[in-house]
Structure formats: structure tokens, C-alpha cells
Design a protein around this nucleic acid. Structure first.
Lengths: 224, 224
DNA sequence: CTAATAGTGTCTCTTAGACAGTATGGC
DNA sequence: GCCATACTGTCTAAGAGACACTATTAG
């Protein structure tokens, strides 16, 4: 067969919302190259694996979270000739969204870091992280993906906190409530309500079958 | 280095609008595997090339079109273990949009086919084609990418025909005109007008600097 | 009672969609 | 004149943003 020969890895951008901020799962590399530096979790694709299988396996190994039940999608591939000193390595970035609270214990060998406070990362992982964060921000606009950041069941306020954390903006609670509850299939009401908490108990919802938002929820102010 | 070894190819979904229909550039394979079958243009990534460089080179070889001036973006990677009988080959799909009329001569070794009328394609190229078409359809909603399908300068009607062909819908010319001319930076008016044609001459526009549409142009009817 | 959070209602402004009507060319 | 295409104007309905207000809990 003609052509150059590559090793292929999968890199994971695992995002969650903790303490009101968008955070990413990072690991410290134990082996060369870039030993001791922070990096995205990931690893080599095995002989009989498809890309999504590798990503799901790495997610399970790194966080203990299993599919289905968590959002996982491919971001894109990165193959600059000099991105890995060992030779030509093509990295396929993936985006995973996990609900807050599903990883109360610190994940094995990794830790959470606010996406705006990650220092330099190994390889080109900073670029992959930027692309993953932007993908997540964009998808909140026109899909119901924000619910993937929330445990089930959830309150409308929890969902709104996700939008505020991911976009870094404040959203009017009343207009937000009207928007999400009037979008068919976004949130399915249950009969239950929150029990703890200081104020009036909130109604609990489950994720609905809708995947796209029509019309979308736009984040940018009417740009001048 | 651990891990499996891959060959890496770039596959191109080159789209244009001809005769009021969305069409894709296909080539007939000369060599095994899948000799004689229709396929997307593409080829192996060379030792010192990045993915976008390979895609630009293949686009130039297959169509004679050179970057910059044409839209080219990565779609995603396809790496099912059995997608190529020669062994493990990872294919990176790319989407290219070329203006109608920039390829009046039939491209070397290829031909245009309406996207709804392509028969079976070699490898998993039908999947890549579907993903590319859906990406193009989605991007028309919230970007100014439709202008990449038009030669410069263009009329508002030409731009509307692009939306109608890509989405397969009819759009009210008057509302469309109001929408695109009131979006800052989408179309830049010129002093020129069309000379040939049967009716009133139309004003000619150039592509503006805007890349995103705020608010977007939604394609789906208020779904019930 | 007060504080805190949840949820509803109302008004305005913008914009999409559905039309009618006018303008300017070729023939 | 006629026809074709380009372009403008007007009305209506839907949704976003900006508020005031009510509801239900803990203390």
C-alpha cells in the first residue's frame, strides 16, 4: 500500500460543570514524551477498535463512566507532521459531557480544571481543548445538549446554571423558564419536587426526546 | 511506539450547485480495491503534509481549483476496522464548496452527480457524502457560507437559488431579499448591475466579511 | 414575621412569513 | 403594448428581552 504510516490515538475533552464553572478532566503524563506535563486523557486505537469504541473505553478507564448515558462525539483529527516527537501520530479529538456529581471522587489519575485556567498542555492538546469547548458552547445554542451536563432528575435552575457556566453569561430566570418549558420534548415534567434547599421546592424534570432546539437559544447579544 | 499502524487518506466531498441542484464531484476508481466503482476523490497523506494540505492538493489535482478562494474544512474521520480490505486505513473526510461556473469543463477524471442520485459508492464513501451534505445544509443556517457557492459578483437571486437547491425548498424572494440585505456584512453592494437577462437588471454584490448569521436563517418549518 | 428560591403574567420590540404593489429591462 | 424579473411596502403572528408580581419553603 502506498502512503505514509501513522499511529492513531484518541484524545478526550471531558467537560462538566462544577462550582458554577465549566471544567475539563486533565491527567499528568507519566511517560515520555512530555512526561510530567498535563494532558488530555487518551490512548492508542487498538487493532479491532473503531474510533468511538476507543473513546468509550478511554472514558471508562479514566472516569469509570460507561456509555450509554453520556454524550460522546467526535471533534476532528489533528495530524500536523511535528505534533508528536515519536513520529507521525494522528490524534482524533472527542468531546464527552458528564453530569455534575457523577464523579464525586476524584477520577483515577486525573483532576478537574476550569477551562480558562488550564496552563500549557502537552502536544497540541490546548488546541483540541479549545475546539472542544467551542463545540460545546455552539451546541448549547441549537440542541438540547445542556441537559447532558445535569444529573437526572434536574430542576430548571440547574439547567440554567449550565448555560451560564458554559457561556459565561447571566440569563434571566423567568425568560429561561418560559423558553425551556415551552419547547416540546426538551424537559419532561415529573410529579416530584426538591426536598432540601432554602426556598420554594422546585419541580423535577427528566431529559426529553428532543435533540434539536427550534428556534435555537442564541447566546450572542444583538451584535452591533 | 505502542499501538496499531494505519494508513491515512483524505476524502473530498466537493459540492456545487448546477442546474438548480446540489451536485457532488465523483471519480471512477481505476485501481483495486473497488476498481470501476464510483468514489469520492482523495488520496494518501504524504510524509510531510498536514491534513488540510493534502485536501487542498487533491482538490487542485481533481478540479484545478486552488486555495485560497474556496471553502475547505474537515468533516471528520472514519476508521471502522473493515472499511478497507487492504488493512487499517483511516479516512479523513473534507468538505469543499465551489462556485457554479468555475468548472465549466468537466473536471479531469471526474463528473458531477446530483447528491440524491448517486448510486452506491466505494468503501464507506456514501456515509462520508451524507455527512458532508448534512454539514453543508446545517451551515447555511447560521453562517454566510452560501455565498461560497456563488461566483463573484453575484445577485440576490443567485444566492437564493443556492439555498433552494441545497435545502430543496422554495423561498419567498421578497422576504429573502430583505433578510440578506439587512444582515450587515453578508453582501456588499456594488454599483454594477446585470446586463443580460430578460427582466429588470439586478444589482450585483460581493461577499462581505461576515461569517456568522445573527439571527440565523432557519430551514425547518415550525415543526408540529 | 423575613429571607430565599420557584414560578407566572404582561408589555414591548424585533423578526419571520404572507402577501400586494411598483420599477425596469427585453421583445 | 406584453412579459419577465427585480425590488419595496404592509400587515400579522411569534418569540426574545425586560420587567412586576405571586407562591412556597426554612428559619
Amino acid at each position: 500500500m502506498r502512503g505514509n504510516v501513522f499511529a492513531v490515538t484518541v484524545e478526550l475533552v471531558v467537560l462538566t460543570v462544577r462550582d458554577g464553572r465549566l471544567q475539563v478532566l486533565l491527567v499528568r503524563r507519566e511517560m515520555a514524551p512530555h512526561a510530567g506535563e498535563l494532558a488530555l486523557p487518551g490512548g492508542f486505537v487498538r487493532p479491532q477498535e473503531d474510533l468511538l469504541e476507543t473513546a468509550a473505553r478511554e472514558l471508562a478507564e479514566g472516569t469509570g463512566l460507561a456509555l450509554p448515558g453520556h454524550h460522546l462525539e467526535q471533534l476532528g483529527s489533528y495530524a500536523a507532521p511535528d505534533r508528536d516527537p515519536r513520529g507521525r501520530v494522528l490524534g482524533v479529538g472527542h468531546l464527552a459531557l458528564v453530569p455534575a456529581g457523577s464523579l464525586d471522587t476524584t477520577p483515577v489519575g486525573g483532576h478537574w480544571s476550569p477551562v480558562e485556567e488550564t496552563g500549557p498542555l502537552a502536544f497540541d492538546h490546548a488546541v483540541i481543548l479549545t475546539d472542544g469547548v467551542e463545540r460545546a458552547r455552539a451546541k448549547l445554542e441549537y440542541t438540547t445538549l445542556a441537559a447532558s451536563f445535569c444529573p437526572e432528575p434536574m430542576t430548571v435552575t440547574q439547567l440554567r446554571r449550565v448555560y451560564e457556566a458554559v457561556w459565561g453569561v447571566e440569563i434571566d430566570p423567568r425568560n429561561f423558564n418560559r423558553k425551556v418549558t415551552s419547547t416540546p420534548g426538551f424537559l419532561l415534567p415529573t410529579e416530584e419536587r426538591t426536598s432540601s434547599g432554602r426556598g420554594r421546592p422546585a419541580q423535577l424534570f427528566k431529559r426529553g426526546p428532543a435533540t434539536v432546539l427550534h428556534p435555537p437559544m442564541l447566546r450572542e447579544p444583538p451584535a452591533q
